[in-house]
């Protein structure tokens, strides 16, 4: 039974990494965008694999349906046909390789150090975890027979709602201002005359 998630993990990883590499190497910006979309879809798949359904949907909705459309839009507006024929990389290969090597070294270090290097926090009750009140609330919701098989992570949407509207209400509100600023900013920037 555990084969399938594993299989999907490797498949999705291959898609993500392959897509990412193609994203940063394609000559044509549109192709890059398409590969980025592939990557993003792969990431959405990873979320599903991790029982983060809501996030997966948001990923597709916001990233692919929103951000990437915007990207494509701009690529088309600024018409990059000329740019595609030019040199695509700057002269910072050395720095980039350095970065890559550093990160790879870190990875290697992890691998050598092995399992004990991955000591994550303790599961259980942080202050912001669903406590009894939340669970009760969730049970009071319609059509939720109880907490699902994924431990505390199901029902996903309701829990995220709890987190967003209760524990992280403040950042949620700030995020709304953030988006307002982004909207205003995008309009100010992109419009010829305001």
């Amino acid at each position: 039974m555990n084969v399938l998630p594993g299989f999907f993990f490797y498949l999705l990883s291959a898609i993500i990494l392959g897509g990412a590499i193609l994203t940063i190497t394609r000559r044509n910006a549109v192709h890059s965008a398409i590969w980025l979309i592939v990557t993003l879809l792969g990431v959405a798949g990873i979320y599903l694999n991790q029982h983060a359904e809501f996030l997966a949907a948001v990923q597709v909705l916001v990233y692919i349906g929103g951000i990437m459309v915007l990207f494509l839009f701009v690529i088309m507006l600024v018409n990059l046909d000329e740019a595609a024929k030019q040199r695509q990389f700057n002269h910072q290969w050395t720095i980039a390789v350095g970065c890559a090597l550093a990160l790879m070294a870190e990875l290697a270090y992890f691998i050598v150090k092995g399992r004990e290097s991955f000591r994550f926090g303790d599961t259980g009750t942080g202050t912001l975890n669903p406590d009894a009140a939340v669970i009760e609330f969730l049970k009071s919701c319609r059509d939720i027979p109880g907490l699902g098989p994924g431990g505390f992570l199901q029902p996903n949407t309701e829990l995220i709602a709890c987190a967003l509207y209760r524990d992280y209400l403040l950042p949620f509100e700030i995020a709304s201002v953030l988006l307002l600023v982004a909207i205003v900013g995008a309009v100010v920037m992109a419009k010829k005359e305001i």
């Binding site: 992280y168 403040l170 950042p171 700030i174 995020a175 201002v177 953030l178 600023v181 982004a182 205003v184 900013g185 100010v188 920037m189």
Partner: peptide, 29 residues
């Protein structure tokens, strides 16, 4: 400014991150 104040008062990673973004995106503009 609102973002900055929140950044200085924040004690939570998410709050801090979002306030930071509020501030810097405003400044990009």
């Amino acid at each position: 400014t609102a973002g900055m104040i929140l950044l200085a008062t924040g004690m939570d990673l998410i709050t801090l991150f979002v306030s930071l973004e509020l501030m810097v995106i405003s400044i990009y503009i």
